[in-house]
Design a protein around this nucleic acid. Sequence first.
DNA 1: CTGAAAGCGCTTACAG
DNA 2: CTGAAAGCGCTTACAG
Lengths: 348, 348
Amino acid sequence: MGVTIKDVANLAKVAPSTVSRVIANSSRISEKTKQRVRLAMKELGYHPNIIARSLANQSTQAIGVVMPSSADKVFQNPFFPEVIRGISIGAHEKKHAIYMSTGETEEEIFQEVVQMVQGRRVDGIVLLYSKVDDMILPYLQEHDVRCVVIGKPFKEGETVSFVDNDNFRAGREAAEYLIKLGHERIAFVGGDLDLVVTIDRLTGYDKAIRAAGLQYRDEYVIHQEFLREGGKEAVRKLMSLEKRPTALVVADDLMALGVLNTLDEMGISVPGDISIVSFNNLLIAELARPALTSININIFELGYQAVRCLIDQFESPYKVVEQIKVPYQMIERQSCKRLNEELAETSV
Amino acid sequence: MGVTIKDVANLAKVAPSTVSRVIANSSRISEKTKQRVRLAMKELGYHPNIIARSLANQSTQAIGVVMPSSADKVFQNPFFPEVIRGISIGAHEKKHAIYMSTGETEEEIFQEVVQMVQGRRVDGIVLLYSKVDDMILPYLQEHDVRCVVIGKPFKEGETVSFVDNDNFRAGREAAEYLIKLGHERIAFVGGDLDLVVTIDRLTGYDKAIRAAGLQYRDEYVIHQEFLREGGKEAVRKLMSLEKRPTALVVADDLMALGVLNTLDEMGISVPGDISIVSFNNLLIAELARPALTSININIFELGYQAVRCLIDQFESPYKVVEQIKVPYQMIERQSCKRLNEELAETSV
DNA sequence: CTGAAAGCGCTTACAG
DNA sequence: CTGAAAGCGCTTACAG
């Protein structure tokens, strides 16, 4: 049904190959012919079939965006829309389309990636996470697929492009901040331990704790999903300890929100009884009561830089490995308090 | 570089067409041959080239998702991640991939749609909005592209599938709710007047106002973007009136948040001085202080039903037009108050 | 500067 | 039950 390059060729009285060259605006075609062909295209309402072009071309002008797991959970956390916002704007600037994974389980997602890649649907991949035992990154490397990961690859660090925050430092500074406020019993509430971001922030936290001569306690380290429910669960565990922490480093705002809700239900005051430093600095951090002191990791920038970096790879004739560190800043709000003051109050 | 159907055919000692039939699991191929071919596929690590298949097939197993405007603004409002969550899960169930628009301006988005459609990148389109003077829907109709709109089409109502809430009723009920609380000066803060959702809710609001014998005032109807800034702007306008409203119907939670922030800055109390009913019932409605009474429009369901409906069209041999109404519920929280009480208090 | 031809990797009548 | 051949709509050496 559609009008093809042949129809245009007929009308313009040229060969199909010439039409093709006009589309590509080849300098080897005379202006006259170009004019004639363009006129014919307009008259017929011609639009190139991208699929056919992709097949001939071996390139699609599309990038695949791979999420960690089911859209169900992922899109509940405002982190993801925000990265995608960055990706979308970056892709748009470079005239690339976006393909999104929709798989639920790890296996499904893997199969989707295989489909995207071997099905030649995309020219490259942005991985929105980094895990310890991931099958996807090795697969991509083996098949020489251009990709960039948001987060730090676990082992493939030398050979793969990525954009990340310095999560080790950020984790350390979060803990140090609480230490400076006089806290000694500081817990860490993070995501799954197979996420590299969790490992990095936890390592930073650990470093700060030990450097301050404080005791590292296993029971102060909790791993949960980056959802509200995860935060709730964490609080239940921490508050059942005999030595309750007086401060928390929470690796995600949505989680921190769950923490806040549950503490509130239990009648535990923030920052009165417990101080909290969170990560991501999303709108919800600002809206939470008390408003959360949170580390702004510049999520938009993570996404934006990721595509920029990916498309650099497309455009470069040789293999490029870029590793980009996106800066972060702590945004102080109302969820932290000096411990001494607290003691002072209660000892009155 | 990739292994093709030919390689498999060679190894399995069959014709390429046979391999193709095995992939499609045609019943006309013997089990023996299937076994042999599958073995060969496995040995070679064969994966079908979807692009090539699409070209031969004229079908892509992908759907295009078209957003109202720049990802920049769109993804700031949690409405969109939530629809996309529904779309993603629906698409995944039906084994379809998702293509997202990234355009900024109306013209760019139109061009993207043309590319998706004529470029045969997608089998159909989900339109995430509905406007009065939209060029996209007419274009899709003219080219016989299967599509479904989230929201109610302005004129194409009979011929196009859509999924929507009953926004007229919802708008009316929101206003009636406030009227029942004794309010008489009720303003409406909505989106652009060329969005059908705005028109519908405003019409419902209007209906309720007049039915109650109240005066409809032009200066009580404000149109702004569905962003926080939009809400702020609205408040500035409304609060500069000599007869300030005592209640607001706000068509979006994010907007309502802006309203709340600005009223707070101005020292105007909600619900003390002003009552608010909002729409969408997002997490932010729950987090806002005071928590917002908001109409849950079941955004996830809007997205989920939209793909279901779209894929129904793919699977049906004849043209189907489905029109789905997704129910809504008002969720009462702390942003509304009976006007009498207020008077009572102040008159003491 | 332009054309004829092969090829991208599949699918699908048509034949047998 | 299987194969040979044409075709999907482009691009791109190769020739002139």
